[in-house]
């Protein structure tokens, strides 16, 4: 059973409010090692500074969207093993299919619950302690 302290998360969303909400939700799960970025390009810069083993990214962002980020993450040997959870809108069924094709580990539909985020993270990492 992995420890929540082993998670090194990068939260990517162009809304500061949503980043703060995801951060507080992860904190409630015991995750303490977190950084955030406002779009895909900024996320790649953060990953170049220091890798992450969990990326939670919105799809709809300026400059580089979530799919662009996912493709870049999977194409880079330094980042390709990071777990990637894509945040989507309710109507984005096609996007979820594309995210799966590009190597997303899971997806989460906004507006999500604390339990649903916990479930998605645990589906990727196993139950957290």
């Amino acid at each position: 059973m992995p420890a929540a302290s082993a998670i090194n998360a990068l939260i990517v969303d162009d809304q500061l409010t949503m980043r703060a909400l995801i951060r507080s939700t992860l904190q409630q799960m015991g995750v303490t090692n977190m950084r955030d970025a406002g779009d895909g390009e900024e996320a790649l810069a953060r990953l170049a500074e220091r890798p992450a083993n969990l990326i939670i990214s919105d799809y709809n962002m300026p400059n580089m969207d979530g799919l662009g980020l996912l493709r870049a993450v999977r194409a880079n040997p330094d980042t390709r093993k990071a777990a990637f959870i894509m945040l989507t809108g309710r109507a984005d069924k096609e996007l979820v299919q594309r995210a799966a094709q590009f190597g997303a580990n899971n997806y989460l539909v906004k507006p999500f619950t604390l339990m649903s985020l916990k479930e998605k993270v645990e589906q990727v990492f196993g139950a957290l302690t």
Binding site: Q15, T17, L21, N60, K110, P111, L114
Partner: peptide, 19 residues
């Protein structure tokens, strides 16, 4: 257990309009 649920819903409603 989930005090931020309302804020997440509101943020999503705003995000839909902004996007």
């Amino acid at each position: 257990n989930d005090p931020a649920a309302a804020a997440r819903y509101g943020a999503y409603a705003m995000e839909l309009l902004i996007n």
